[in-house]
Nucleic acid binder design. Structure first.
Lengths: 220, 220
DNA sequence: GACACATTCTAATAATCGTTAGAATATTGT
DNA sequence: ACAATATTCTAACGATTATTAGAATGTGTC
């Protein structure tokens, strides 16, 4: 029967998306790309894998149309092919966190406290940031900040914090964030800040989570 | 470095979800289970695959904690392990529809018109259904209707429509729905109804899409 | 307790995937 | 034109996956 056959075709197409997201390395690449476009070399460096392997994985992601590429002179830049891809990453991770005990335990071990934000906390953070009651600190590389960041956030990449401590007000609460729940940069930043006497905490949200919650980012 | 190692662990866990959704058959099983719980035999029948193979795929889904099972006498019943799994299915399908040209074309061929609903259309449908201005017809098997259906919808399984035509008002618009955009039951229902002089149209939404849009279902 | 039934487990096959090394391509600067 | 650089393509390996058949498990019924 041809009805079966066409139906199989439909599910097969959706399975292409599933296949593309079935590899840990590819998921990590997606998460990095959700922070902004990057060259192959940069992606390989961030994900800690060989350039060749990165290229192979990017090819798979491209075949599933989750990313697109563009040549800029000698470099080839990759980016997510839409905001929905970033939302897909957040959804996959959320489902995994919800159902996979192994993941929950690994995260609890890694990050002592769970700083998951709910919608109300996000709004309240936004309000306090706007009024300058807290300093929201983006500790990712500065290009990622430039590609989009939380409203009212200031950029201070992890590697520069030590030399730029005096830029931070000693009397205000500092809220650090990075790429998302799996990223350890904000945790390191908080450790460093606390060590120097600042009141600092981190949040699990990165820009993908913020967007997926329906809140806008700031550019510039 | 152990930081790398623990990070790899995290992505590996998320990849379990991706792997589970990387097979067309498993996606079809997820879609069917999103309509309500079912036995293995029933799932095999609906998905048109061997019971053994169904069991094997369910095992994979269970290992990824996307479904859970329970023994009821001689039968084993499977169900989705949460509403977020249904939302994941909708998201995967939506991303595929958005980015994969092949899928778009296959769907256009299959279903002449695209009856995708936006949020406003959903609200307006809800309003008209409440006032009785349209008849919303659930053409899925009645157990699926019982497990949850669109508000104000009436159940009339595809196979029973021919004998129950007189139950339908001849002067009102009939809006038929089934399991979702990939399901052909509503299209068949509309063809049958039009053939008998009714004003009928179908919508792409099933209960998973309705839920994912943030709207409530009716039970009972 | 023997039987029928629904489901799963085991084992085996072919097909696909991840990874790496070496060759190939395209662009820029000289 | 030539070398340098970034990236991809090709080929190859072992590791995984989908599928099927046959044996095994657990549950209700006679």
């Amino acid at each position: 029967m041809t009805k079966r056959h066409t139906k199989d075709l439909l599910y097969e197409q959706v399975a292409r998306i599933g296949k593309a997201t079935s590899s840990p390395k590819r998921l990590e690449l997606l998460e990095i790309l959700a922070q902004g476009e990057k060259t192959v070399e940069r992606l390989a460096m961030e994900a800690n894998i060989a350039v060749k392997l990165t290229s192979a994985h990017l090819k798979v992601l491209k075949a599933a149309r989750l990313v697109e590429s563009q040549r800029d002179g000698r470099f080839i830049t990759y980016r997510l092919s839409g905001a929905d891809v970033s939302a897909l990453w957040v959804m996959l991770r959320t489902v995994a966190e919800e159902h996979l005990v192994e993941l929950k335990m690994a995260m609890d071990q890694l990050f002592a406290a769970p700083e998951k934000l709910d919608q109300e906390t996000r709004q309240s953070l936004l309000y306090k940031a706007k009024r300058g009651e807290v300093v929201v600190l983006d500790v990712r590389p500065s290009e990622e900040y430039d590609a989009g960041h939380l409203p009212f956030a200031r950029s201070m990449p992890l590697g520069e914090i030590r030399q730029r401590l005096q830029e931070l007000p000693a009397d205000k609460e500092i809220v650090a964030y990075c790429r998302g729940p799996f990223c350890m940069m904000s945790a390191e930043a908080v450790a460093l800040l606390k060590q120097h006497g600042y009141r600092a905490q981190k949040i699990a949200d990165g820009t993908p989570e913020w967007l997926a919650a329906g809140l806008p980012l700031a550019e510039s």
